[in-house]
Amino acid sequence: MKIVILSRNPKLYSTKRLHEAGVKRKHEMLILDHTKCDLIIEKKKPAIVYNNELITDVDAIIPRIGASVTFYGTAVVRQFEMMKAFSVVESQALVRSRDKLRSLQILSRANLGLPKTVFTNYSKDTSEVIKKVGGAPLIIKLLEGTQGLGVVLAETKKAAESVLEAFNGLQARVIVQEFIKEAKGADIRAFVVDGVVVGAMKRQGKEGEFRSNLHRGGTAEIIELSEEEENAALKAAKVMGLGVAGVDMLQSDRGPLILEVNSSPGLEGIEKATQKDIAKSIIRYIERNV
Rank of each mutant, 00 (worst) to 15 (best):
K2N: 15
I3C: 11
L6S: 12
R17H: 14
L18H: 03
A21D: 08
V23Q: 14
M29D: 06
I31R: 04
I31A: 06
D33E: 03
D33S: 02
K36E: 13
D38H: 08
K43Y: 13
K44H: 09
K45Y: 09
P46C: 14
V49K: 09
N52T: 14
T56P: 03
I61E: 07
I61T: 12
I61H: 08
I62S: 05
I62R: 04
R64K: 13
A67I: 13
S68W: 00
S68P: 00
V69G: 01
G73S: 10
T74N: 12
A75L: 15
V77M: 05
R78L: 10
R78M: 08
R78N: 10
M83T: 10
F86D: 01
V89M: 02
R96F: 14
R98N: 15
R98W: 06
R98H: 13
L104E: 09
Q105P: 00
S108V: 03
L114D: 11
P115A: 08
K116V: 12
K116D: 04
V118P: 00
S123D: 15
T126F: 07
V129S: 04
K131R: 15
K132E: 15
G135H: 11
A136E: 04
A136H: 04
G150I: 05
G150R: 05
L153H: 06
A154H: 01
E155N: 13
T156H: 02
K157F: 02
K158V: 01
A159E: 11
S162I: 12
L164Y: 06
F167P: 00
N168I: 03
A172F: 03
R173K: 15
K181Q: 09
A183V: 08
A183S: 15
K184Y: 11
G185C: 07
A190C: 13
V193P: 01
V193N: 00
G195V: 02
G195S: 03
G199V: 06
A200C: 08
A200H: 06
M201W: 07
M201H: 05
M201P: 08
R203C: 07
E209W: 12
L214K: 05
R216Q: 15
G217N: 03
I223W: 01
L225A: 12
L225G: 14
N231D: 14
A236Y: 06
A237S: 14
G243N: 14
V244Q: 00
Q251A: 08
S252W: 08
S252G: 07
R254A: 11
G255L: 10
L257G: 04
L257N: 04
V261K: 04
N262G: 06
S263C: 08
P265M: 01
L267M: 13
K272H: 13
A273N: 08
Q275I: 01
D277A: 09
Y285F: 15
I286M: 02
E287Q: 15
R288P: 02
